[in-house]
Design a protein around this nucleic acid. Sequence first.
DNA 1: ATGAAAGCGCTAACAA
DNA 2: TTGTTAGCGCTTTCAT
Lengths: 329, 329
Amino acid sequence: MSVTMRDVARAANVSIATVSHVVNDKQGARIGEDARRRVLKAVAELGYQPNALAKTLSQGRSRFIGLVADAIASTPFAGQIIHGAQDEAWRQGYVLLIANTEGNAAAEKEAIAMMLQYQVHGILYSTWYHREIEVPPPLQHTDTVLVNCYAVDAEYPTVVPDEEQGGRAATEELIAAGHRRIAFVNTTSPSPAKTGRLAGYLSALEAAGLEYDASLVFEAEPAQEGGYAVAASVIESGVSAVFCHNDRVAMGLYDGVREHGLRIPTDIAVMGFDNQEVIAAHLRPPLSTVALPHYELGAAGVRTLLGIGMERGSSRLLVECPPIARASL
Amino acid sequence: MSVTMRDVARAANVSIATVSHVVNDKQGARIGEDARRRVLKAVAELGYQPNALAKTLSQGRSRFIGLVADAIASTPFAGQIIHGAQDEAWRQGYVLLIANTEGNAAAEKEAIAMMLQYQVHGILYSTWYHREIEVPPPLQHTDTVLVNCYAVDAEYPTVVPDEEQGGRAATEELIAAGHRRIAFVNTTSPSPAKTGRLAGYLSALEAAGLEYDASLVFEAEPAQEGGYAVAASVIESGVSAVFCHNDRVAMGLYDGVREHGLRIPTDIAVMGFDNQEVIAAHLRPPLSTVALPHYELGAAGVRTLLGIGMERGSSRLLVECPPIARASL
DNA sequence: ATGAAAGCGCTAACAA
DNA sequence: TTGTTAGCGCTTTCAT
C-alpha cells in the first residue's frame, strides 16, 4: 500500500537510517551530497510520506494535544477557541485532538481516556462560557490547562478572559464619548462575567470621577428578551448611555428603545459585550462592544500547555478583552 | 513513564499475548477465567491504558478520519458540521483530526499532507456554506467525501443540503398558514442556495395551484442590511407573507417592517432560512425558519466515508432541511 | 559518511 | 488455554 522508508532506501540505494537522517534533516549526522540527492529524488518520485504514528511510537513522545470542550457547536464562541488552539498547535508542530462532551460527564471521561490512549502531550479543558468547573479526576494524570474556566480547589494553569478589564474598557468608551450618567444592565446569572464586568464598570466610573449610582445598575436575563424587558426602566432612569452585559441583551434593548421612539445613539448610546459577530456587526446601528478573546484563549492555552512564553509566578493568565468601536455611541 | 502491556503481563504473570487478548476481548482465543481475572486486576491496579498509536501501527489501519474545513470559527454553522462528524466518528470508533484552512490553499495542502501522515482512513472536505469547489489535488490520493460542497468535474461522494426541498418546505408553511401572495426575497449572490430555494418556492406555489408572479421575487444582499433595504418594496407589493433567503435577511426585514408601522405576523408573516439560533429564536416574534442540517451533514459525511448505510447508485446525498415553526407566521 | 540493529507498544499467526 | 515470535515504520546508538 503506502510507500515506506524502506522503499525509499531501496530506491536510493542507501540504508534506511540514511533516509531517516536526510528526511528529518538531522544535524548530528553528515550525509554525502550525493546520497542526500539520491534520497531526495527517491522521496519525490515515490511520493513518500513519513508515517507520523510510527515516528511518534519510536520517539516515545507524541505530537498530539487534546482539547475537550463542553460545546463546540452551540455557539460561535467555542469555535473560536478551537480555532485559536488549532492554529497555535500547528504553529508548534502539534495536532489537535478534539472532543465534544456536551457537558456529559460520561462522554467527558471517555474523551479523556481516548486522548490518553493517543498519548496526548497534554489536555486543554475548555468551556464555552467563562465559569467555574470541577476538574474531572482523570485529568489529573496529565498536563492540563483550563481554558475559559477555572477550578477553585486545585491549581491548574488557567487561561481566562479579563472580565474586569473588559467592563472597564466598555465603560471608558462611553465616558470618552461624553456620557456621565451610564446605566449598566448586568445579567441575572451569577458568573465571573457578572461580577467582573460590574467591577470594571465601577472602576471606570471611579477613575473618571463619576459617582456610582446603584439605581443605574439593572439586571436582566442575558438574552434578547431580557434586554427588551429592561428597556423601559433604563429609559426612565434618564441615562444617556447603557452598557449591556452582552450583545444579545443589547439587541433586545435596541428593540425596546425603538419602541419608545428613541434613537440610537442620538438619544441613547449603547455598548455591548462579547462581539458576537452575527449580531453586533449587523444591528442598526452597528453595535459597539467589547470582544471576548476566544481565539486568543485557545492559542494561549496551547502555549501555556507547551510552556511557551510562560510568565513566571501566576498560573492564571488573564487575556485582554479589546473594545470594538462601531456606530452605537 | 506510562505502563505498557508488558508491565501488565508481568504483574498478572501471563504472557503479553494473553494480555492483548483479554484487553481486546478477542473472540478467537479462549482465556482461562483465572488468567483473565488476573489480567483485569493488573490492568485496573496499574491504570493501564492501551497505546492507540502502537495498536494502529501494528494493525496497519488507523482509526483517524480527517476533516478539513474552510472556516471552523467564522460561523456557528461549521461548528455543527464538526459536531456531527465528531459524534458519528466516535460512534464508529474513530477519532477526528480537524484542520482549519481559512480557504488558504497552502494551509489546505499542508493540512492534507499532515492528515495523510497520520494515516487517516479518509478525509472529509467541507465548506461553511454550500458551494461548488475544486478538489485540491492531494485529496485524490485518499478516500474523500465532500461535505456541504460539490465538485463539478470529478465525481466524489458528496453530502449536501437539499436546498430545493427546503425552499419548498418554507413556502408550504406559509401556504398552510393561509397565505396566497407570498414574496420571496432571494440573495443576490449566485449559489446553490439561491437557485435551489427559488426552485422550491416555485414548486410549492405550483403544487398549491398558486400562480407565480415574478414581481414578488426580490433580491437582497444576504444579510440584515439587505433585508432592511428591501422591506419597503416588499410591503408595497402587497403580499401577506415573505419567505426570506436567510434568517439574517429576515432580521433586517423585521426592522424595516416595523418602521413602516406593520406588525409581524399580523400584517405580514415572515419565514426565514438557516435556523441561525442566536437570531431566529430570539427575534420578536421568534422567527419561523427552515434548518440547515449541518450536524447531519457532518454525520452523514463520515458515514459515507466509512461506507455505512450507503445508498447504491447516486453518490450525491441530499440531506433534508426541516422547517422550524416559531411565531412569525 | 553510512549502515546494522535494537527497540517503541502492540497484534497476529503459529506453536506448544 | 497460553506463550513465542515476527513484524508495523521509524529513530537512534554504535559500528564500520
